[in-house]
Design a protein around this nucleic acid. Structure first.
Length: 563
RNA sequence: CGGGGUAUGGCGCAGCCUGGUAGCGCAUCUGCUUUGGGAGCAGAGGGUCGUAGGUUCGAAUCCUGCUGCCCCGACCA
């Protein structure tokens, strides 16, 4: 590709509304252009990157035996009503009406459509297992789009759906996707982890997320210092090792006017946060509200809480009126003593002695409180997020926490959709069986952003070679004045193209400094400079994007640099 | 959904407080010079100041409504 026939539009200034580095660089280097909140045009450079990511994904999906198709992005409401998600999905589902006033949505995912196809086309166990995939635009009306294509309202996703007879076959499909995903991210040269994840409201089955590690990641990923345990913090189990000591203080009331948070309480009365008790009221499934009790320095894990049968799904905090009627005080003064609602304590909270908690009276707290003596023993559950240093649930080492960007998710759906939508096949006995499904996603556009988060410097982007918009660039110095440089650059361009290199020939009449700066911002992995001075010795200058110095090589050694 | 901010040429901003002919940098175009790290000089084009009202002799500026966008919060006891 010749730069004069392409479209390169870079800017020195950082757009004011881009917060993270990948967003800033993608805008500055001209990979994306914002159209509206969470809506981006993929400019020619950006589209090249996306196409390379897609190609790798497509190759590995095909190699795994999956079959590509393409489903509509507009989906009739009837299908979603059938699966029950028309009501469940919430405001993220962008709903539209057509001219006949019929309801549709813009697909945020395609389980309903693929299940509809499967139930029509797949009639016999002999056709199974089968794995369909597509690479397509998804639409989610995000509460708050941000970080450019990292969390946008329209994005490209590869989604695959497997159909199996029996759980063993489902597990095999799942394992195969796990392997395929590792190959995909390995080929892209990304630093990633496959972690255990919560399976969401559908529940039960296996679920793995693939996270690219980066400080700007929106998720917390937990891994063990020894062994290969890794999990999303939403999922990571706490193995409590503490045991309860003896009660040594008597319960007393203390005045705490204006104290509403654990931090305020801790500093006001000079007691460590870990000695305070945090009491949260949430909507219950049977009783109107349920109390969740945690050590003051621990954080509630909402996913774990939501999975409790006593707690309403989805998790909802009690409102002011609920709190008033259940605890007879306002938020900030609640405590577990004397409550007549179910009290569920985190395992670590349940081993506390002589703790401080709200008195269920505004402006008062209680100190020296002890389970069993001052209030009934609670139900004990794992309610909190793990913290660094917690023991590995697998028994070896301790846990560390890093930030990750979720770029892939593989997930056993089981019969969640096939059952409600009647997707059955006849088994070898001629009996109808519900198909077992799996679903497997990769956020294509998000991978591009994640790769930049992980690979950049002060000059700009440093693309991993496999997904760079161009593998190499030819930079002629002062080509307008030198026919020799022009001829040599053209010859090199032809040679590289003939060798199958995806090369950009920067034939714009720019000064060298401007050209180099552009190419470094754009992040092309290999640069070849052609100049009169070098040509005199039959030489070319080479510089890898990560290199700090250029090297002069023989003209004949150019191709070797790309191996 | 709650709070805050913001809207001025393609981009980034000043001007607004204290009303009086709309300005700067980048980018763009022309010419000359320059040509190994985002060139210099000279010139040029480009803005219904988000939108609808109001106040005023006069509004980018003051007031009101609306809209877009951005940030924070929506894990808290």
């Amino acid at each position: 590709m010749r730069a004069t026939q392409f479209h390169i539009k870079t800017t020195k200034e950082t757009p004011n509304d881009a917060e993270i580095i990948s967003h800033q660089l993608m805008l500055r280097a001209g990979f994306i252009r914002r159209l509206g909140s969470g809506l981006y045009t993929l400019m020619p450079l950006g589209l090249r990157v996306v196409r390379k990511i897609e190609a790798i994904v497509r190759e590995e999906m095909n190699a795994s035996g999956a079959v590509e198709l393409l489903m509509p992005s507009i989906q009739p409401a009837e299908l979603w009503q059938e699966s029950g998600r028309w009501e469940k999905f919430g405001p993220e589902l962008l709903r539209i009406k057509d001219r006949h006033d019929r309801d549709y949505c813009l697909g945020p995912t395609h389980e309903e459509v693929i299940t509809d196809i499967a139930r029509r086309d797949i009639k016999s166990y002999r056709q199974l297992p089968l794995n369909f995939y597509q690479i397509q635009m998804k639409v989610r009306d995000e509460v708050r789009p941000r970080f450019g294509v990292m969390r946008s309202r329209e994005f490209i996703m590869k989604d695959a759906y497997s159909f199996s007879l029996g759980e063993e076959s489902l597990q095999a499909c799942f394992d195969q996707m796990h392997i395929a995903y590792c190959k995909v991210f390995d080929r892209m040269g990304l630093d990633y982890r496959a972690v255990e994840a919560d399976s969401g409201s559908i529940g039960g089955a296996q679920s793995r997320e693939f996270h690219v590690l980066a400080d700007s990641g929106e998720d917390a990923v937990v891994y063990a210092t020894e062994g290969d345990y890794a999990a999303n913090i939403e999922k990571a189990a706490v193995v409590s090792q503490t045991t309860r000591g003896e009660a040594s203080e008597s319960m007393a009331s203390i005045d705490t006017p204006g104290v509403h948070t654990i931090a305020e309480l801790s500093s006001k009365i000079g007691v460590a946060e870990s000695q305070c008790m945090k009491t949260l009221l949430v909507k219950g499934s049977e009783s109107p509200v349920v109390a969740l009790v945690l050590r003051g320095d621990h954080q509630l894990n909402e996913i774990k809480a939501e999975h409790l049968e006593e707690v309403a799904t989805p998790l909802a905090m009690a409102d002011a009126a609920d709190i008033k009627s259940a605890a007879n005080c306002d938020a900030g003064s609640i405590g577990p003593v004397g409550l007549s609602i179910p009290v569920i304590a985190d395992a670590d909270a349940a081993t506390m002695t002589n703790f401080v908690c709200g008195a269920n009276e505004n402006g008062k707290h209680l100190s020296g409180v002890n389970w069993g003596r001052d209030l009934p023993e609670p139900l004990v559950r794992d309610l909190r997020n793990v913290v660094e240093g917690d023991p590995n649930p697998m028994g070896t080492g301790t846990l560390k926490i890093v930030r990750g960007i979720e770029v892939g998710h593989i997930f056993q759906l089981g019969s969640a959709y096939s059952e409600s939508m009647g997707a059955t096949v006849l088994d070898e006995n001629g009996k109808p069986q519900i198909m077992q499904m799996g679903c497997y996603g990769i956020g294509i556009t998000r991978v591009a952003a994640a790769a930049i988060e992980q690979n950049n410097d002060a000059q700009g982007i440093i693309w991993p070679e496999a997904i760079a918009p161009f593998e190499a660039v030819i930079c002629p110095v002062n080509m307008v004045k030198s026919e020799a440089v022009q001829a040599a650059a053209e010859a090199l361009y032809t040679e590289l193209r003939d060798a199958g290199v995806d090369v950009l020939f920067d034939d714009r009449p720019l000064r060298p400094g401007a050209m180099f700066a552009d190419m470094e911002l754009i992040g092309i992995p290999h640069r070849f400079v052609v100049s009169d001075k070098l040509l005199a010795n039959d030489e070319i200058e080479y510089r890898g994007r990560r290199d700090t110095e250029s090297v002069v090589i023989k003209r004949s050694d150019v191709l070797a640099k790309l191996k």
